[in-house]
Design a protein around this nucleic acid. Structure first.
Ligand SMILES: [Mn+2]
Ligand SMILES: [Mn+2]
Ligand SMILES: [Zn+2]
Ligand SMILES: [Zn+2]
Lengths: 150, 150
DNA sequence: ATACAAATGCAACATTATTGTATTTAGAAA
DNA sequence: TTTCTAAATACAATAATGTTGCATTTGTAT
């Protein structure tokens, strides 16, 4: 499920990345780590509506640069942010996992466990990174659809 | 390479889909069919800058609905549009191919020939569609990088 | 030729994102 | 603890992308 971390750990994370411990940053970390799905920019903005929009963008950008979170666009092109589980470094991400976008609840899941099969591209193409998107029903929504509601 | 079609064929396409033959639509078709890569919304807008922006959006939307083109977001979340090569029908696309986004020239290639491997998702997930993204260097750009420039 | 639905063009607006700068603050140094 | 400063936030302005409503124009069927 969601990675459980307390406020001290979030403060440590910021310190490790040479980022000042500020309330907005800690709140963003806390929110994103409390969920097992990515969080969309609109959601972040409405939940953190007392934080300035620009500040929020800058927090998300610096977290992404530092390898704390990664950005993924859902099927509608909306930016979603999820915590990095892999060994992501500053400006060097390793988030080549499958992203599952539920067509019902719109949530984006990072399925880190799945390993991506090797693919051979046509001659001349030199791929450096792959990501797979799947869309369909997530566990919660597929349960609702079939049996007695969850 | 790029699918070669003449203006009569574009007119036929529109007629088949019960769309009126208009200059803006024919120009969009002509441009998109003349390329072997997707075209970004900003590019379309600047090339077709004498067509009203809203008209362009509506043309792209109706072409997508009719199964003539499909929309794909590149690594930066920018909307790109490419002609459908598969047997796409009105509101029923079959564009589950790999999209290659060149990090140098930013072009998005639809690699229809590649077949996507079957993937098994964690229990509960019910996938309905997959798309794979690859990023790296396209044939043109990888050639430039290594040998005597193209 | 006429008529009408469809398509375009235009204006207004909404959302998402960026840039510049003044103010505030976390954390280091004194 | 107080002082200092670079970093972070807040605010204002602007850009880019996308949508909605409506008046006008146009393709096409009759
Ligand atoms: Mn992810
Ligand atoms: Mn494609
Ligand atoms: Zn769901
Ligand atoms: Zn290229």
């Amino acid at each position: 499920m969601a990675q459980v971390k307390n406020n001290y750990q979030f403060e440590d994370m910021l310190q490790k990345h040479n980022l000042k411990k500020t309330a907005p940053r800690l709140r963003v970390l806390s929110m994103m780590y409390s969920k097992n799905t990515a969080t969309s920019q609109p959601d972040l903005e409405s939940v953190m509506n007392d934080i300035d929009r620009v500040t929020l963008y800058r927090i998300l950008n610096v977290f992404e640069e530092k390898g704390i979170i990664h950005k993924v666009f859902d099927l509608n092109g909306t930016a979603n942010y999820a915590v990095c589980h892999s060994d992501c470094q500053e400006n060097h991400h390793h988030d080549e996992h499958l992203h599952f976008n539920c067509t019902a609840c719109k949530n984006v899941y990072c399925l880190n466990e799945l390993n991506i099969p090797k693919l051979t591209l046509p001659a001349g193409f030199e791929p450096q990174a792959f990501t797979i998107y799947a869309s369909g029903l997530c566990p919660k929504c597929s349960k609702k659809g079939t049996a007695k509601t969850n």
